[in-house]
Write a protein that binds this DNA or RNA. Structure first.
Lengths: 186, 186
DNA sequence: TGGTACATGTAACATGTTACATGATTAG
DNA sequence: CTAATCATGTAACATGTTACATGTACCA
């Protein structure tokens, strides 16, 4: 029915369904793991998009299994729709950093409070970096032909470079903004 | 009426209104210039939020001027609301990069097409970097006491580090993904 | 037998996007 | 006179978020 172009979220679900039939739950998990760093998806979105795509004939529900699992598989129309999406030039990135908003208006916040918030964010970014580096080590340890392909590794690499840049930024903030870099003794 | 906590978009409008009364148009322009890199706002959002905040008593419309300009000023309640927002720990960042989505599913796209899309994005990032670097040069050239404060400069610095990291990523993609880095002769 | 993880789904709402309608003012 | 820019606003829709309701199966 719907010839409307796919949105990126729906498209990514179709992308994963190329690997085989999956339930909404599976899709949430794989999306979180593989694209969570630069494309967040919530559970209710997944079920909503699956329902819409099923109505549009892009996916097909299979038999309900144990625990009411309902696997969806991609249809031929779904593959075509996905291919059309993939051929389009990707849109511009969207970055929303409430933390930087806090920084721009930093003059309105008690300095110790702003510093504490920044330190907390720095920790989170450090943790993410560590996580991505672990993933990369795993990827590189995988026997040839196994493990993530070059495309997926490139995304991991992006995450690592991004997090490193963010940490560098934290560590080079002027003392008036972040007096005592988290984790540093002196 | 509304004691509901501010959303970040509304809060940033209030933040700018600390500088003095502004019209919706002015706010769009200043937001685009100062926080556009990490917080996008559209015109219709601005007018909607202004209307909502006026209803909630956080801003007050002034007399209409030439060209029907309608300046809004922040009220005392608005200042309080903004201060409360600013004291909260900033939320997590949200990054949405359709380009990386294209990369993850890169195996489904004709290589020359993907490469062309990537090259185009690389150009855009290079342009942004140049723009931020110009801004920084301007900021550093300003006489002491004029020009952007340390907080605003820190955000600029973020933009520069971010764009550099992105460009480095492009320039280190494996040849199977981006065979001929844009702008490079050999 | 009780807690945790699995699994699906809905409802209500907030936020963001796109397109359009309308008109004033200015510069050439 | 006319095109560009300034300026406000609405309508319709798409997308994203949060909270909740319901129930299954595994494991200690």
């Amino acid at each position: 029915m719907t010839a409307r172009p796919l949105n990126a979220t729906a498209a990514s679900l179709l992308g994963f369904l190329h690997l085989g039939p999956m339930t909404g739950w599976d899709l949430v998990a794989i999306a979180e793991r593989q694209i969570g760093a630069f494309w967040s998806i919530t559970q209710s979105q997944v079920y909503r998009e699956l329902a819409a795509m099923a109505a549009a004939g892009l996916v097909e529900p299979g038999e309900r299994g144990a625990r009411d699992r309902r696997p969806f598989s991609i249809t031929e129309a779904g593959r075509e729709s996905f291919a059309a999406w993939a051929a389009q030039p990707p849109g511009d990135e969207l970055i929303r950093m409430p933390m930087l908003l806090s920084v721009v208006f930093g003059a309105h916040t008690p300095p110790h409070l702003l510093a504490a918030h920044l330190a907390s964010h720095r920790d989170r970014h450090a943790a993410k970096l560590a996580e991505y580096e672990d993933d990369l080590a795993l990827a590189e340890g995988a026997p040839p032909g196994y493990g993530p392909d070059a495309y997926i590794r490139a995304c991991l690499d992006f995450g690592i470079r991004y997090e490193r840049a963010v940490l560098d930024w934290f560590d080079n903030l002027p003392a008036e903004i972040l007096p005592d870099p988290a984790g540093a003794a002196g």
